[in-house]
Simulated assay, not measured.
Amino acid sequence: MELAPKLRRIGNDIIACHIVVGDDGLTVIDTGLPGHYRDLVRELQELGRPPTDIKGIVLTHGDSDHIGFAERLRSELGIPVYVGAEDAERAKGAKPPATPKDPRRIGAVVRFFAYAIAKGGFRTRPLREVIAVHDGDVLPLPGSPRVIAMPGHSPGSIAVHVPSVQAVFVGDELTTRHVLTGAEGPQPAPFTDDQAGSSASIERLSGLDVDWVIPGHGAPWRGGTSSLIAAYRSAEGRPAAG
């Protein structure tokens, strides 16, 4: 699905990953679940590009619903996979810590887990090799993605700023559709390791010149970062900084 010229979406508001399209190749941001591989192939066919045009994968964090087909592309095609240094072991299969129980609504929970099962959520292969990245790194990939450290959802969560498509990909540092309640709009994401840290990290988006703020779950946000942060703070029940 085309979001904008040179920016494509795979999946839906339950789980999504993205492709940055460049003349010099493609950069994949997150890889959803194993079943999203077929969606990737269809998207590449629409673009008229082979899988070998993918020059790298950038993971916003190491959770299982973001690493889905990454190991397949890495092992079969030698495509490098980049992840925040503190999430490298999680991407390789280390079990995340238990998180506080999040609010739930049965309909939303059933839709989330039914979709995850349909997309092969129990078949996710951990990464065997990753390239660790750090705050401020500009990666040698199409679009020149820049890493913004945003610890909270997980220790190595990052945002990926791609100026060429006026977008920042925020993974699960926030959501615009809560997978366990169905609530829409910018808000804290469930399954978060450190919610206070995540809340503080949101301010790192302030001042970014982007048209798109794109989470891993929920609709892309097109209102700029100031309005997004204000909406997030409202959902938290406290005012925006400044």
Rank of each mutant, 00 (worst) to 15 (best):
E2R: 15
P5E: 05
L7Y: 11
L7M: 08
R8T: 09
G11T: 01
N12S: 14
D13T: 15
I14Q: 12
I15P: 06
A16K: 06
C17I: 04
I19F: 06
V21C: 08
V21G: 04
D23G: 14
G25C: 11
V28D: 02
D30R: 09
T31W: 05
H36W: 11
H36C: 07
D39Q: 09
L47Y: 13
L47R: 04
G48T: 09
P50N: 08
P51V: 01
D53L: 03
I54K: 11
I54L: 12
G56D: 00
G56M: 03
V58S: 09
L59E: 10
T60M: 02
H61K: 00
D63L: 06
S64C: 03
G68R: 05
F69V: 08
L73T: 05
L73K: 01
R90A: 02
A91M: 10
K92R: 15
A94R: 12
P96G: 11
P100F: 02
D102M: 10
D102C: 00
R104V: 09
G107I: 15
V109Q: 09
V110R: 08
A114C: 03
A116T: 15
G121K: 12
F122S: 04
F122T: 07
F122C: 00
L127V: 02
E129H: 10
V130H: 11
I131A: 12
I131G: 08
V133P: 15
H134R: 15
D135W: 15
G136F: 07
V138C: 06
P140S: 12
P140G: 14
L141S: 01
S144H: 10
S144T: 04
P151Y: 06
G156T: 05
V160N: 10
V160A: 09
V162C: 02
S164V: 06
A167K: 07
D172T: 01
T175G: 00
T175A: 00
L180E: 15
G182E: 06
E184G: 02
E184A: 09
G185M: 13
Q187W: 02
P190N: 13
P190E: 09
D194S: 15
S198C: 11
S199G: 13
L205W: 13
G207A: 12
W212Q: 13
V213L: 10
V213A: 05
I214H: 07
T225V: 13
A231Y: 04
